[in-house]
Nucleic acid binder design. Structure first.
Ligand SMILES: [Mn+2]
Ligand SMILES: [Mn+2]
Ligand SMILES: [Zn+2]
Ligand SMILES: [Zn+2]
Lengths: 137, 137
DNA sequence: ATATTAATGCAACTTGTTTGCATTATATAA
DNA sequence: TTATATAATGCAAACAAGTTGCATTAATAT
């Protein structure tokens, strides 16, 4: 949908392979964070059979290039999503395991408090909320 | 230090074994979330050699009994900490990998916003902040 | 078209986590 | 104090996620 990530990588001199473009396109068109094995399964289902090793290597590459970001949940597997979308966080339904984005207006004050109270240089943060989604109630 | 978790389990009829009490005591006396393999290593170092399988089984038991909680970070391993402490969240130093608790006054508004905006029944949340700690700056 | 080398696939490996089953040890009762 | 019931444990094996070495393939530049 928004292939700006792809042209950015090409301008930087990286090759645009089928694996790379299909992973980027998948994540661009997925509205929630997904795992490495999800990427692998979904691509296979739509006829793009790349090796799981390649998926892992591509994830690491895309993390380095800041095309994607990690999303930690209460799970043993990390999830990933593309960067460049409006800043948001995540709702996880503990009943159906769905993940939904949420944009928070009131996080600004929270981040200021963290900055003031901790004397850390904060570069990133991850806010996750767990509960039951409307469909599962 | 505060063996209230231990007596609570005994009152519920669970056996208090060496593995169970040493894991609870370790977590009670650790001021940051730790992983299953950390628990195993630390206990071994202080002379409590329990099998890693038992550590995993005990973690699951203690999660069920709400004695401990999961803490998801940008890591492939989950961390765990005891419940019953003042409600707090975590600062992770990406340089030295240290984890520090932080109590946030201004999270109340955030949680109200999540509740109002999402129509989820939120039961838990996890806020993690990543950056450089004062020692590493 | 050819050359260069980034990216890939495959196999093997490491690490984290789970399971089955025989044995041990805690709690309770005789 | 000893016997009993069974929760908890250890061990081996399996499973799952993620990594690495190396030979091969394919994307780009010439
Ligand atoms: Mn935020
Ligand atoms: Mn909170
Ligand atoms: Zn749901
Ligand atoms: Zn640090």
């Amino acid at each position: 949908m928004i292939p700006q990530h792809i042209s950015k990588l090409q301008e930087k001199g990286f090759r645009m392979t089928q694996a790379r473009s299909s992973i980027i396109n998948l994540l661009e068109n997925t509205d929630h964070p997904i795992t490495a094995s999800s990427i692998h399964k979904i691509l296979k289902r739509i006829g793009v059979s790349i090796n799981i090793t390649t998926v892992y290597r591509e994830i690491e590459f895309l993390l380095n290039e800041r095309i994607i970001e990690k999303v930690p949940l209460m799970d043993n597997e990390l999830h990933y999503e593309v960067t460049g979308r409006p800043h948001h966080h995540h709702l996880f339904c503990t009943s159906c395991s769905s993940i939904k984005d949420i944009v928070l207006q009131s996080e600004k004050g929270l981040l200021e408090e963290v900055h003031d109270a901790s004397s850390y240089d904060i570069t990133r943060h991850s806010l996750a909320f767990f509960g039951t989604c409307p469909d599962c109630k």
